[in-house]
């Protein structure tokens, strides 16, 4: 019995080691490379960009990667003017922008935002007009939406949140958000808040939704990862990295990582849906 455990242990070690070696494989293309990559633009991209950059620079300190924010417009403009190598945008660049700057687009993730309520809430589906009324504070009781006679507790996100930006633009059509809404500082805090309050309503990245909260069907469409991927769920956007013309070898290697298994794992860990090749 003891011997068997030993064998299992050794095999386990090899398995772990194998996985580790395979993991280094995606990043190994940077071994021996040298140079700098400048990135700017969309803030939603930053967590993923930073993680990938840190891993590359840890493996190979001769590669320098700088990441700046600025927003999607800035990213497209700066890459078009040749100020940065990669310009990130949380929207697809317009046909004019693509033509004017000769942009090449890499869409490596999707970001969908779902309206969430407590799992015990009987309200499981809402129309977008109802969602707008809730967040504007015009509908303030669940009984007006077919639920129990209970005041609605509205949770929103801070002003600089990318999730808020997507939700506000696509679900609320840039409409009013009530001043009285509680504000939580992250997708995780939103989950804690909504999971612990039977009368709560909030919104979060589809990648964060689990059994502790219930995602509301919006205008008849379930906000599942699959529906976001197929483009059916409307409150979603692609995360794009854009280059001016064909990227050079170093930039190409960086972008390829976002489509490799290890890169996709990072994208998923940051709450987005990786598109893959």
């Amino acid at each position: 019995m003891g011997k068997m455990m030993q064998v299992v242990g050794i095999v386990g070690c090899f398995l772990l080691l194998g996985q580790d070696l395979a993991g280094a494989g995606d990043f190994a293309v940077f071994a021996g490379k040298e140079g700098a990559i400048k990135i700017s633009g969309g803030t939603a991209h930053i967590p993923v960009m930073r993680e990938v950059a840190e891993r590359i620079m840890t493996l190979n300190p001769k590669v320098r990667i700088t990441i700046a924010g600025g927003g999607s417009g800035v990213g497209i403009k700066q890459v078009g003017e040749g100020l940065v190598d990669i310009g990130n945008s949380g929207r697809k660049p317009t046909a004019e922008e693509i033509a004017a700057f000769n942009l090449k687009l890499f869409q490596w993730a999707l970001d969908g935002v779902a309206v969430v309520v407590h799992p015990k809430n009987p309200v499981k589906a809402l129309g977008s007009d109802q969602v707008r009324a809730i967040f504007a504070g015009k509908v303030s009781n669940w009984k007006d939406l077919g639920g129990p006679d209970q005041a609605i507790h509205v949770f929103s996100r801070e002003e600089t949140s990318g999730t808020r930006e997507v939700f506000w633009t696509l679900a609320l059509s840039k409409g009013e958000v009530s001043q009285a809404a509680d504000v939580v500082p992250s997708n995780g805090a939103m989950k804690t808040a909504v999971a612990g309050d039977p009368a709560a309503v909030g919104y979060m990245s589809v990648g964060y939704v689990d059994q502790s909260v219930a995602a509301v069907v919006l205008d008849g469409v379930e906000p599942s990862i699959d529906n976001v991927r197929r483009g059916i769920y409307p409150v979603a956007r692609g995360l794009f990295s854009n280059t001016k013309g064909e990227p050079g070898p170093l930039v190409k290697a960086f972008l390829d990582l976002l489509f490799a298994p290890e890169g996709q794992a990072i994208i998923q860990a940051k709450g987005f849906i990786p598109t893959g090749k």
Partner: peptide, 10 residues
């Protein structure tokens, strides 16, 4: 305050 006060800017 961040975790408990609600953070509504009103």
């Amino acid at each position: 305050a961040l975790m408990l006060a609600g953070n509504a800017a009103q």
